[in-house]
Amino acid sequence: MDSHFPSQDHLLSRGPRPQQLPPPAERRRLRELWGATLEEVADALNAEPETMAEWEAGRHNADTADTYAYACLLNAFREQLPTAHEPDWAALRNPPATAPPAPAAPVIPAQAAPDRAEDKPARRGARWTWEEKDCLRTEFLAGTPVQQLAESLGRSEKAVRWVLYHLRLIPFPTDDVPAPRAKPAKPKAYTVEEKRKVHPNAYEPWSTEDEQRLAERCAQGASLAELSQEFGRNHGGIASRLIKINAEGPAVEEAWEYGGEGH
C-alpha cells in the first residue's frame, strides 16, 4: 500500500470528522416529527434548553464532538421515522359531517337536550393503555375518522389527535394548541432566571420523589393549573411530565389537549 495513505490505526485515532448539520428548518422538522421537545433533546445532548433553541435555529456553534452527537441524533430521527403511511391530513383536520337530515317534526323530548350537552367522554382523564393505543393505531390506519375513534374510546377528539401525533401518525396538531401558546412574530429573549421568577423550578431536573408526588396529586384530582402552582413549573412542563410518567387523573386529559410540551 502506498505510504501516503494513512493506516487504519492512524485514521481511527483522528476521531470522527466534523458533521455537516442540516439547515435549521430541517433540524426542527425532524425533532417535531419524532415528537421530542427541545428540553428532551437538550437533556440528551447535555445542553441547556435555551442553548438548544439557539443551536436548532442555527445561531450557536458547538465543538466538534457535540456537533457530531447532534448530527447523529438527527440522522437517527430521519432513518427511523415511518414513511410508509401518509394519512389524508385534510380529512383528519376536518372530518366530514355525517349528521342525518332534520326530521319534519321533533322526535326527541325537549328535556333530553340539556342531558346531552352535559355528556363528557367516559374515559376522560384515565391513563392510556398500550391496548388502547394499539387499537387506535389499527383503526386509524384502517381509515376510521377521528370523531368515531373518540366516541368508541370514550375520549375527546383533541386527546385522540395528540396521541396520534405522539404515535407519529399525524403531523403536529397546530389547530389544537391553545391560543396563549401561539408564538409572537418576534420571539422575546429570556433567561432561566427570568423564567424562575414566575416558575421557581423551571428547567430543574425532576427527582423520583417529585414524580411520585406529582402522580399522587394528579390521581387525587388536582388540575393542571393547580399542579403548575404547587410544583413551581409552567403548564407545559407539568403536562409533559404527566404524560411521561403515565399518570392518571383529570389533569392527564388536559395534558394531552395541551400537547405535552414545555419545561
Results as ranks from 00 to 15, higher is better:
residue 67 T to I: 11
residue 78 R to M: 04
residue 57 A to H: 03
residue 72 C to H: 08
residue 60 H to N: 05
residue 88 D to Y: 05
residue 164 L to D: 04
residue 48 E to M: 09
residue 74 L to K: 01
residue 128 W to L: 06
residue 142 A to G: 08
residue 69 A to Y: 00
residue 117 A to N: 12
residue 133 K to A: 15
residue 86 E to L: 13
residue 99 A to K: 09
residue 160 V to K: 03
residue 115 D to M: 12
residue 108 I to R: 11
residue 86 E to D: 08
residue 131 E to H: 12
residue 137 R to P: 00
residue 172 F to I: 07
residue 70 Y to C: 15
residue 143 G to K: 03
residue 53 A to L: 10
residue 61 N to C: 12
residue 49 P to F: 05
residue 56 E to G: 05
residue 144 T to V: 15
residue 109 P to K: 02
residue 91 A to R: 13
residue 82 P to M: 03
residue 51 T to S: 13
residue 50 E to S: 10
residue 175 D to R: 02
residue 151 E to Y: 07
residue 164 L to K: 04
residue 147 Q to H: 12
residue 132 E to H: 07
residue 129 T to L: 03
residue 73 L to M: 12
residue 139 E to R: 15
residue 51 T to D: 15
residue 93 R to A: 11
residue 149 L to T: 04
residue 70 Y to H: 13
residue 48 E to Q: 12
residue 53 A to F: 01
residue 48 E to R: 10
residue 96 P to Y: 07
residue 172 F to T: 10
residue 165 Y to C: 04
residue 97 A to R: 08
residue 115 D to Y: 13
residue 94 N to M: 01
residue 95 P to C: 06
residue 83 T to Y: 08
residue 81 L to M: 06
residue 123 R to T: 06
residue 123 R to G: 01
residue 97 A to S: 15
residue 93 R to P: 13
residue 73 L to Y: 03
residue 53 A to N: 10
residue 102 A to I: 06
residue 90 A to Q: 13
residue 150 A to S: 05
residue 122 A to W: 06
residue 100 P to M: 03
residue 48 E to P: 10
residue 169 L to N: 04
residue 130 W to P: 12
residue 48 E to G: 12
residue 127 R to E: 04
residue 175 D to M: 06
residue 115 D to R: 08
residue 125 G to T: 10
residue 157 E to V: 10
residue 130 W to T: 15
residue 48 E to D: 14
residue 68 Y to M: 03
residue 91 A to Y: 03
residue 51 T to P: 02
residue 108 I to W: 08
residue 143 G to F: 01
residue 145 P to M: 02
residue 106 P to E: 05
residue 120 K to S: 13
residue 177 V to E: 10
residue 139 E to P: 00
residue 74 L to T: 00
residue 170 I to G: 06
residue 54 E to Y: 06
residue 149 L to F: 01
residue 172 F to G: 05
residue 50 E to G: 09
residue 84 A to H: 14
residue 72 C to E: 15
residue 127 R to N: 04
residue 176 D to W: 01
residue 138 T to N: 12
residue 83 T to K: 11
residue 134 D to Q: 13
residue 125 G to S: 08
residue 145 P to D: 04
residue 130 W to G: 14
residue 122 A to I: 11
residue 62 A to C: 09
residue 140 F to L: 11
residue 171 P to I: 00
residue 91 A to H: 02
residue 72 C to Q: 14
